[in-house]
Design a binder for these strands. Structure first.
Lengths: 120, 120
DNA sequence: CACATCGTTCGATGAGCGTCGAAGAATCAC
DNA sequence: GTGATTCTTCGACGCTCATCGAACGATGTG
């Protein structure tokens, strides 16, 4: 279980789409990847975050991908509107936009995260 | 609304994966396409089928794709385990495997089909 | 039988994705 | 400042995907 941390006042919010612009196909496409699903589950296990991106990736030892690939996946999740990311010093703080996703696609995230995951 | 039809005894069942082999990423990937989502909604509107594949495609006038492309999308849905298809004479009869999908991924199909769809 | 109907299969094409290593940017520690 | 840490960006690579038209197969109709 990854430790939750708090977001500093001076942390910068990385660009993300507003709730109303979340599209179903984009969200589903973002969820349809085993690496991203694994990362999301780590965050969900930590109460949806916020957690350190580095801790998140390290908490999933079955993910054997380069740092640039992981960074790419974080961006896909963020661009889809599923996660929110703040940059805080050298670290990135990530959390699930549970309320936003739930408001637009009720039940979707629960169903996906509760489902037998990748490799199950 | 498309008319439901019955499946003949002699109709041949097209190959499909058993319930236990449905994978989350495959199902999500199959759902993450606007054309397939539209087709699925037509079937869902007809009580999950069974309906004629031709009627199904014709009931979605916003889908402007060739016949071969539509056929491809039906196959993706079938291979993912979301739909079941019987061939009956010259026609194909399609239905949603609601129980199977629900058993493996509870709430997923409801959430996706109830969500504001492609173009909404 | 010949012909039409319904759908699949077969290349082919162009776009996009997941992946990597190398280079870059920003921040912290000394 | 120098150097280490943390993550992003930048090509590049191979692969998959959505799409099409043309050809094919199977079935029904005359």
């Amino acid at each position: 279980m990854v430790r939750r941390i708090s977001i500093d006042e001076r942390a910068e919010l990385l660009p993300e789409p507003p709730v109303a612009e979340l599209t179903l196909t984009t969200v589903l496409a973002a969820l349809a990847d085993p690496v991203r699903l694994t990362l999301l589950r780590v965050i969900a296990d930590a109460g949806d975050g916020p957690i350190d991106c580095g801790d998140c990736a390290a908490a999933a030892p079955d993910i054997t991908r380069s740092e640039s690939t992981i960074s790419h996946h974080y961006k896909v999740l963020r661009d889809a509107g599923i996660t929110r990311t703040h940059k805080q010093g050298r670290h990135r703080i990530i959390e699930i936009r549970r309320g936003d996703v739930e408001a637009r696609f009720p039940g979707l995230l629960d169903a996906v995260l509760a489902a037998p995951g990748p490799g199950a």
